[in-house]
């Protein structure tokens, strides 16, 4: 492919467009590998480092509070357009990907467990 040819220019355009595609900005505020100290770290510390969890649950019998974090935001649908053959129009498709209400606690990447004083007592990793 020669520099300046139509094919070259099209390739450059596609590469530039791919570079400006966006990354999701609603994921956890920090890495789920962040080190927290059991017996010392508080709910405040975890919330400040990671943001609030996808799910909170309090175990009534033990009074322990579970904070469940997902590894990444859930992909719910993909939207794309395809040209309609023989016309100048395009058809837009919206494909749902998964059930938005799946069990967050069961599918969580990490669950932080706090006692009733708000101090971290255990970490469960599901990866």
């Amino acid at each position: 492919m020669r520099i300046g040819s139509a094919g070259f220019r099209l390739s450059v355009l596609v590469i530039v467009l791919l570079c400006i595609s966006c990354a999701s900005q609603i994921g956890n505020r920090g890495s789920l590998n962040t080190t927290f100290q059991i017996g010392k770290t508080t709910k405040n510390d975890v919330a400040n480092a990671l943001g609030f969890p996808a799910k909170m649950k309090t175990d009534e019998s033990s009074q322990l509070e579970l904070w469940a974090y997902q590894s990444r935001p859930t992909l719910t649908s993909v939207i794309y357009a395809l040209p309609i053959p023989g016309t100048t129009h395009a058809m837009i498709y919206n494909h749902p990907v998964i059930n938005r209400h799946s069990d967050i606690l069961k599918n969580a990447a990490v669950v932080y467990i706090f006692n009733n004083n708000g101090v971290l007592t255990a970490i469960q990793r599901n990866q």
Partner: peptide, 24 residues
């Protein structure tokens, strides 16, 4: 309930993230 439209040039993605603050 965060709902995001992520631009991916050839397609777009819809992503969702929940942040639960509960009794906080």
């Amino acid at each position: 309930d965060y709902d995001e439209l992520v631009y991916k040039v050839l397609w777009n993605e819809k992503r969702q993230q929940l942040a639960t603050f509960g009794s906080f």
